[in-house]
């Protein structure tokens, strides 16, 4: 069975820290940072990068379109 490994890049300056991606990530990869961006939002980041499978759920549900998703077949 093929397995995938993924990664996301978050446009942290445009992220509003709504957390919708956090609860919709099936692998529990994403958290909100303790640090804030220029607008004062705790932006989303990959807290557990090793668990990402590149399913793109976060990108699809992000209201601000700040998440790009990448995936490779292992």
């Amino acid at each position: 069975m093929a397995s995938f490994k993924g990664a996301i890049s978050v446009d942290t300056e445009r992220c509003k820290g709504c957390g919708v991606c956090v609860v919709n990530c099936p692998m529990g990869v994403i958290s909100l940072a303790k640090e804030v961006n220029g607008k004062g939002y705790n932006y989303a980041y990959m807290a557990e990068p090793d668990k990402c499978i590149g399913c793109a759920s976060c990108g699809i549900v992000c209201p601000d379109g700040v998440i790009s998703v990448y995936k490779v077949k292992l």
Partner: peptide, 18 residues
């Protein structure tokens, strides 16, 4: 494989519409 190895244009599967 590092995150940097994955985040490459050829591996892009989702981004905001142009």
């Amino acid at each position: 494989m590092t995150v940097q190895d994955i985040i490459k244009p050829e591996n892009l599967v989702y981004q905001k519409s142009k």
